[in-house]
Write a protein that binds this DNA or RNA. Structure first.
Length: 424
RNA sequence: GUGGGCGUAGCUCAAUGGCAGAGUGCGUGACUGUGGAUCACGAUGUUGUGGGUUCGACCCCCAUCGCCCACCCCA
């Protein structure tokens, strides 16, 4: 059987078993967000294109957004990220909000990219930001939230690592090499690519971009200096705070982390599979100007975003996804024949009144078929209600897990069911 | 945007120019009131789509659609 209309390329279909994973993930990140005292919020899924045009980076807006004209010929984008919407929401109520504002969100985003491993056109993203704080300790709190979340999923420090850097530090160091400010962006891009090219090819790309061999040597020295952070008072405080928070093992300095988004102005960080391959699982940083850019008074912030696709791949790779009970109902009430159908329905209603999820089989059918149905759905228990039980005022209750069954007076059934379900 | 791979039963895949198959799942029965095992029987296909070559095409050629992987880029 072929569907006549295909799903839109890169969109997601969450079958119940996929939905269970998504909800589990949502539960994990909500728990961590709330533990750190953050409040849940959300923005519009549709935004005017101009919101992103300002600061998100040209590539993101021009190449990677779903954009279409509405009936009024206004260009509308399906949101490719949340931070600009957040900045606007903050700016709109800047006078009444309590700062620092600690907010988090989890919802769908869209980017018009070519789908491949770890990347879809529609994805869910966790966003968490602290707006109105401007200290290395606030930045560290955000990195600590990353680490706490990763830890809460069961990922160990051997499996995932959060790399930290600071753009100000890199800008100073690069400037000291005699590289002009307008060249820094292209340097950043080249730094980003260093792990993808061979050592000699990367060297050549630096020279091809017009930098001197002296500058190349200086760059390499910078990027190989794992102690470079000690030259930054901010990063020194960040790592100190992370130690106090007890998450140092998940965090490491990495001078190659620069990030693509234009709006980051200070500390930046990314989490990666420690097994090297793939791409960043999450990323974020400190931004000073975003609120002002959408019309508010200047207000700094720090935050990060994590997509559901990469983290799921990672959790799957390291076997961290739990098994889920997918059954929708705990109990099936069988329907023996037409004559007993009404009684079965009444019995099922009684079970539900006791707060137990219950399905009444939809039609009279062989017991074999009804039991198989319950079994296939993974249901823990079945209530068999046939003529023998009906005439004696009994119910037969079957525990599908251990294959045991007993026939009891109807009044005792709910208690017995609760016993079985407590062990399921 | 560039390059590579793949589309055959519900699913996973065989069949390299000569009668479209297996495993699994599904249905029925063995078992007339009992699910995971076993056995038997049964059903399922315009071989993604359209064209071409050929006596003959799942197979070769062209086009097209879809999926996957990598590059680019990455929030």
């Amino acid at each position: 059987m072929k569907p006549t209309i295909q799903s839109v390329k890169g969109t997601r279909e969450f079958y119940p078993e996929d939905m269970a994973i998504r909800q589990w993930l949502y539960g994990k990140l909500r728990q961590v967000s709330e533990l750190y005292g953050y409040q849940e919020y959300d923005g519009p899924f549709l935004e005017k294109i101009e919101l992103y045009a300002a600061k998100s980076g040209e590539e993101l807006v021009k190449e990677q957004s779903f954009v279409f004209p509405d009936r009024n010929n206004e260009l509308i984008a399906l949101r490719p990220e949340l931070t600009p919407s957040l900045a606007r929401m903050i700016a709109q109520r800047q006078g009444e909000l309590v700062f620092p504002a600690r907010w988090w969100s989890f919802g769908p985003f869209w980017r018009y990219e070519k789908p491949q491993k770890g990347r879809t056109r529609e994805f869910f993203q966790w966003n968490i930001d602290q707006v109105g704080a401007n200290s290395p300790e606030a930045d560290a709190e955000m990195i600590g939230i990353c680490a706490s979340f990763l830890k809460s999923t069961g990922l160990t420090a051997d499996e995932v690592i959060v790399y930290v850097n600071d753009r100000r530090l890199m800008d100073e160091q690069i400037a000291a090499l005699g590289i002009a400010e307008d060249q820094r962006k292209s340097v950043s891009k080249l730094i980003d690519r260093r792990d993808k090219l061979s050592s000699s090819a990367w060297d050549q790309s630096i020279l091809d971009a017009g930098f001197t061999s002296g500058q190349l040597a200086g760059l390499k020295e910078l990027l190989d200096n794992k102690d470079l952070w000690k030259k930054s008072t901010e990063l020194t405080r960040v790592f100190d705070a992370l130690e106090k928070m007890g998450v140092s093992e998940y965090v490491r300095y990495n001078p190659q982390i620069v990030r693509g988004l234009d709006y980051y102005t200070g500390v930046v960080f990314e989490a990666w599979d420690a097994g090297a391959e793939g791409r960043a699982v999450l990323g974020g940083g400190h931004y000073d100007n975003l609120v002002a850019d959408v019309g508010g008074n200047p207000l700094p912030g720090v935050g990060f975003a994590m997509g559901d696709v990469m983290i799921n791949l990672l959790l799957e790779k390291y076997g961290k996804l739990p098994g889920f009970n997918l059954y929708s109902a705990a109990v099936l009430v069988t329907v023996f024949d037409e004559a007993l159908r009404d009684d079965s329905m009444k019995l099922a209603a009684e079970i539900r009144d006791a707060g137990i999820r219950c399905i009444c089989y939809s039609e009279p059918a062989k017991l074999q078929k009804q039991l198989k149905y319950a079994d296939r759905l993974g249901m823990p228990a079945v209530l068999v209600f046939g003529p023998d039980e009906a005439s004696a005022g009994n119910i037969t209750i079957k525990d599908l897990k251990n294959r045991a069954q007993k026939t009891l007076p109807r009044a005792k059934v709910i208690h017995e069911l609760e016993q079985i379900l407590a062990q399921a």
